[in-house]
């Protein structure tokens, strides 16, 4: 069976389509965002969002972190088991600081929001370790 233009065989096209789509689906690239809100010196809300990238990310990996995975290939679980180390690492990557303070009739209230904007991370799972590196 030949394609419409007659130059490229249809099975080759189909195979390449399946191959590349499987590569995309199995790509260990994850989108991670982190945000926490502190109101009046009290931690109010903290969120860490992790999702698998549905499209291929561009950029080169840099400044990775190696976390113990115990053979698991579930990034959410790996990060949950090493949450303190991962959050310290996220701080080092750089956070956006947004601070607002209001004093009305000498009564003060403040809100600080620290955010890691959604960043694509490349994740390599080895036997017992997972290497997580942001792409830039």
């Amino acid at each position: 069976m030949r394609s419409r233009n007659g130059n490229h065989p249809f099975p080759l096209k189909l195979f390449s389509l399946i191959f590349f789509s499987s590569l995309v689906l199995n790509a260990s690239e994850f989108l991670i965002s982190y945000r926490y809100v502190v109101k009046n010196s009290l931690l109010y809300n903290e969120t860490l969002q992790i999702s698998k990238a549905m499209t291929k990310c561009s950029g080169n990996a840099y400044d990775g972190i190696i976390l113990e995975s115990d053979g698991k290939k579930d990034l959410q679980r790996v990060i949950a088991n090493n949450s303190e180390r991962f959050i310290e690492y996220v701080h080092l990557l750089g956070l956006h600081v947004n601070y607002k303070d209001e004093t009305i009739n000498y009564q003060n209230s403040s809100t600080t929001i620290l955010t890691l904007k959604t960043t694509c991370f490349k994740v390599d799972f080895n036997d017992n370790f997972a290497k997580i590196s942001p792409l830039k």
Binding site: H91, G94, H96, V97, N98, K100, T103
Partner: peptide, 16 residues
């Protein structure tokens, strides 16, 4: 009647 002071900071901090 009412005294209001608002302050705001925006920055990106890395490697602290």
């Amino acid at each position: 009647q009412r005294s209001t002071v608002r302050t705001a900071v925006q920055a990106m901090i890395k490697n602290a």
